[in-house]
């Protein structure tokens, strides 16, 4: 098993957001986590990536045989966990290339691999850029600075392509994208999919799931997974809306 979350509780500034999450993800699987705004989807993604502002109060997370919660954020990344941010951060003065080269080489070093030299690195990123149809001029520009919404999201998937994670968490990567950008992003994710890695797609809308076909769909509501099923569940949600789940939950 690649990821196992057991009874995970987390809060921010004393406010409990996650109230007992259980989830199992195996290599080769695609999981979709859906849910209304404020249900805790992004919190779950941030907690898994190691954001310090969130305090885990209960529960355990095992990733690739390790206790994930004991690892620093950078070590989680080096162990192959990747978060595509809902709001990618703009970092003026740091070029995209510099970020990626530093990241890739730190990850390689951690895993006992040799660092790539400038030529090898360039060859790699040229190949990966094609996946997300990213303009080469964006490489030398500051990270996400002045990028359009679509460019930012494509840049996240591009980073994912270069870093080749075992577990990717896409946090609302579809939000705000037009249909072309959505296709490009989904296409990139699909091409990177293999039997050795897994993807968790966090989304509010079913739309993305027309392009990235999930093996499992989970509905997160009020800090808990209240319903799990196959890809049909996503369609059902689209049809009936989240109120259907909320009501079911409240009457239960």
């Amino acid at each position: 098993m690649l990821l196992e979350i057991k009874n995970l509780h987390a809060n921010i500034e004393g406010r409990e957001i996650l109230k007992g999450i259980d989830l199992k993800v195996n290599s080769g699987e695609v999981h979709a986590i859906m849910g209304p705004n404020g249900s805790g989807k992004s919190t779950l993604a941030q907690v898994l990536a190691g954001r310090e502002e969130y305090k885990v109060t209960q529960g355990e997370v095992f990733y690739n045989g390790k206790n994930l919660l004991e690892l620093a954020p950078e070590d989680r990344a080096r162990e192959g966990l990747f978060l595509a941010f809902q709001y990618p951060v703009e970092i003026p003065g740091v070029s995209n290339t510099n970020l990626l080269k530093t990241a890739l080489n730190e990850i390689r070093k951690y895993n006992g691999l040799e660092e790539l030299d400038a030529m090898e690195f360039l060859a790699l990123i040229k190949q990966k850029m094609k996946l997300v149809d990213l303009d080469q001029s964006l490489l030398s520009r500051s990270v996400n600075e002045g990028f359009s919404g679509g460019e930012k999201k494509r840049n996240e998937i591009f980073q994912m392509a270069v870093l080749e994670p075992k577990l990717s968490i896409l946090d609302e990567t579809d939000s705000g994208l037009d249909i072309d950008a959505l296709r490009i992003v989904a296409n990139g994710v699909n091409k990177l999919k293999s039997k050795d890695n897994a993807t968790i797609v966090v989304t509010h809308y079913q739309r993305l799931l027309n392009y990235i076909i999930p093996d499992f769909v989970h509905v997160l509501y009020n800090g808990k997974i209240v319903k799990s099923g196959g890809k049909k569940l996503a369609l059902e949600l689209e049809e009936k809306g989240y109120d259907w789940v909320k009501e079911e939950k409240e009457y239960a």
Binding site: R51, E52, V89, E106, Y110
Partner: peptide, 15 residues
């Protein structure tokens, strides 16, 4: 900037 720090660390870059 804390967000920038976390973003870089989440890419495998040390503190």
């Amino acid at each position: 900037d804390k967000d920038s720090m976390f973003y870089l660390k989440s890419r495998g870059i040390s503190e």
